[in-house]
C-alpha cells in the first residue's frame, strides 16, 4: 500500500523531497494520510462487496429471476406441485403456480391457502376463479372444477409479501397435509 503511494522510480527522491518541505497546514493534512490510505483500502473492499451483491442479484438472491430464487415443492400427498420464488421482495408482486396433479374423477379440487399465507401476503388475484370459497380456522378453502384435458390443471396465485423476513406459506388440499414454503422476503 505504502509502496503504491510512492511515485515511480526516477521521481522518488524529488517527490519525497517535495513532501518533506511542507508548510504547517499541509503537514497537518499529511499526518492524516494514514487514515486516507485505509479509506482507499476500505473503498476497494466495498467495491468488491458491491460486485458480490450484483452477482448475488443476478443469481436471484434478491428475488426476481435467477436460479437462487426459483423453487418447487410438492404437497406430502403428491396432490399439488407449487412453483414459486423462494426469495421475494416486500410489496413486489410474485406468482405461486399451483399444479393440480391429482384432482378427483369429476375434476374437483379443494385448494387450501393457509392462514400464514393469507397473513404474510396480500393476494391480488387467483386464476381461474374458484367456483366456491369458504373460510375456516386454518385458512381459506377454494373449490375448483378443473378440466385438465390430460395435463395437470394449473392455478395461478398472484400475491405480494406484506412484511420482510423469513415467512412461511402453507398451501395444500382441504383433506391432505399442506406443504409449508419458507420464503425469504427482502425489505
Amino acid at each position: 500500500m505504502t509502496a503504491r503511494n510512492d511515485p515511480p522510480s526516477g521521481g522518488i527522491r524529488s517527490a519525497a523531497a517535495s513532501l518533506s518541505a511542507l508548510p504547517p497546514d499541509m503537514e497537518r493534512m499529511e499526518a492524516l494520510q494514514g487514515f486516507q490510505r485505509r479509506s482507499w483500502v476500505l473503498e476497494r473492499i466495498a467495491w468488491l462487496g458491491m460486485l458480490g451483491l450484483l452477482l448475488v442479484g443476478l443469481a436471484g438472491g434478491f428475488g426476481g429471476a435467477g436460479w437462487l430464487a426459483g423453487a418447487e415443492a410438492t404437497t406430502p400427498d403428491g396432490a399439488l406441485r407449487i412453483t414459486y420464488s423462494r426469495v421475494q421482495r416486500q410489496q413486489s408482486p410474485t406468482m405461486f403456480r399451483v399444479e393440480a396433479l391429482r384432482p378427483d374423477q369429476q375434476g374437483r379440487l379443494e385448494l387450501r391457502l393457509g392462514r400464514d399465507l393469507l397473513d404474510g401476503w396480500e393476494v391480488q388475484s387467483l386464476l381461474p376463479q374458484a367456483a366456491e370459497s369458504r373460510g375456516d380456522a386454518q385458512g381459506l378453502v377454494l373449490t375448483y372444477r378443473l378440466q385438465g384435458g390430460g395435463a395437470a390443471p394449473v392455478l395461478l396465485l398472484m400475491a405480494q409479501a406484506v412484511a420482510p423476513g423469513i415467512v412461511q406459506a402453507s398451501i395444500g388440499t382441504a383433506e391432505g397435509a399442506p406443504v409449508v414454503l419458507r420464503i425469504l422476503v427482502w425489505p
Binding site: 509502496a3 503504491r4 503511494n5 511515485p7 515511480p8 524529488s14 517527490a15 493534512m29 499529511e30 492524516l32
Partner: peptide, 24 residues
C-alpha cells in the same frame, strides 16, 4: 467527520505529482 467525509489529500507538491495518490 473524517469517517463520513474523508480527509483532504495532497496530489501535487511543489510541481511534483504524487502518482500513487492520483491513481487511488
Amino acid at each position: 467527520s473524517m469517517l463520513l467525509e474523508g480527509v483532504p489529500t495532497l496530489l501535487v507538491a511543489h510541481g511534483r505529482p504524487l502518482p500513487g495518490r492520483l491513481e487511488h
